[in-house]
């Protein structure tokens, strides 16, 4: 099967008064149709920048400096602005944290779905458009009445479902869900995740799920990518990541999760994530790494591909490879 999403060496830099901040530093990954990837990392690790870069929504002072985002054979970085407008939602869709404030308070839900379709298909008849919207609402378990309602009349979970319904309106090939369950209660979180799971199966889209709740993620994704300082440190299947993480940072992350054995013993990762403006030389994780070696401080490790196609960016494995 050919991958539906291929990101190659994607680079994003923010130019600030204090200097250049590399928010994405050469990220590569690929997804097959229907595949689900979880993207985890601390805040500031580049998860959200990644989502914005794929949608080509990086705004000044930020810039995509290089690399490509190929969706279904089209390199999005090469499109004109006009073409990119059409590509959004139809090829690659973004589902925001809908529970908060992602819906326009003064427009009916229906209007916010209709304008999305109209932007891509101006000729569609009114009845057609409405039918598509209603079908989309039903596929996320919402009543048809929601079409005529306003955001403030919906609960947090319902607003999130509306966002999902909008995201799948044009049956995109790739769906990016940016922390879709934060600010929801635990029961609703689960229902929303199940909804995403179901609709992506229906339309066969690849999904990138961004979040920091590794526990929730473990139940829904196939692969997990761990990000740190704008780089993917490790990318493995979800089973491998949780049972046998390779990268010291991934190991620390997994260890910091509460589980039945170390109940009550909360283990964080020592130190703080470094500011992107002053990245340490060599491997950016070395100041916090418990297995740090001398050349970690000077040489940046390369991606090493291990058995089963998992990749790790760490000197511990580059020697073995």
């Amino acid at each position: 099967m050919t991958p539906v999403l291929e990101i190659k060496n994607l680079q994003v830099t923010y130019y600030t008064d204090a200097g250049r901040a590399r928010a994405l530093d050469g990220v590569s990954l690929s997804l097959l149709p229907g595949e689900k990837l979880g993207l985890v990392g601390e805040s500031g690790s580049g998860k959200s920048t990644m989502a914005l870069a794929m949608m080509r929504m990086i705004k000044p002072p930020g810039r995509i400096e290089g690399g490509s985002v190929i969706v279904d054979g089209t390199d999005l970085t090469q499109l004109t602005d006009e073409q990119m407008l059409k590509a959004r939602l139809s090829k690659i869709a973004y589902i925001p944290q809908g529970a908060m404030n992602s819906l326009n308070p003064v427009l009916r839900i229906g209007a916010q779905m209709t304008d999305a379709i109209r932007a891509h298909d101006p000729k569609a008849s009114k009845a057609q458009v409405e039918e598509r919207c209603l079908a989309s609402l039903e596929s996320v378990d919402l009543k048809r009445d929601v079409f005529k309602m306003y955001a403030h009349e919906l609960s947090g979970g319902m607003k999130q479902r509306v966002c999902i319904a909008i995201g799948i309106l044009l049956q995109p090939k790739v769906i990016i869900a940016d922390e879709p369950t934060s600010a929801l209660d635990v029961v609703t979180q689960r229902q929303v995740m199940e909804t995403i799971d179901r609709v992506q199966k229906q339309i066969g889209a690849a999904v990138i799920l961004i979040g920091h709740d590794m526990g929730l993620m473990a139940q829904f994704v196939d692969k997990v990518a761990v990000m740190y300082t704008g780089r993917i440190m490790e990318l493995s299947t979800v089973r491998e990541m949780f049972t046998d993480p390779k990268h010291p940072y991934a190991q620390a992350l997994i260890k910091s999760l509460p589980n039945l054995e170390n109940k009550g013993v909360f283990q964080g990762i020592p130190g703080l994530a470094p500011a992107l403006l002053r990245l340490p030389g060599g491997c950016s994780f070395h100041p916090r790494c418990i297995q740090v070696m001398d050349h970690c401080k000077t040489q940046r490790p390369r991606d090493s591909t291990l058995a089963g196609g998992r990749t790790v960016e760490c000197h511990l494995y580059s020697e073995k490879a």
């Binding site: 590509a87 959004r88 139809s90 819906l103 326009n104 308070p105 909008i166």
Partner: peptide, 10 residues
């Protein structure tokens, strides 16, 4: 957020 999402919608 809703202005942002509107842009994401294309």
């Amino acid at each position: 957020d809703y202005v942002n999402f509107a842009e994401h919608k294309g």
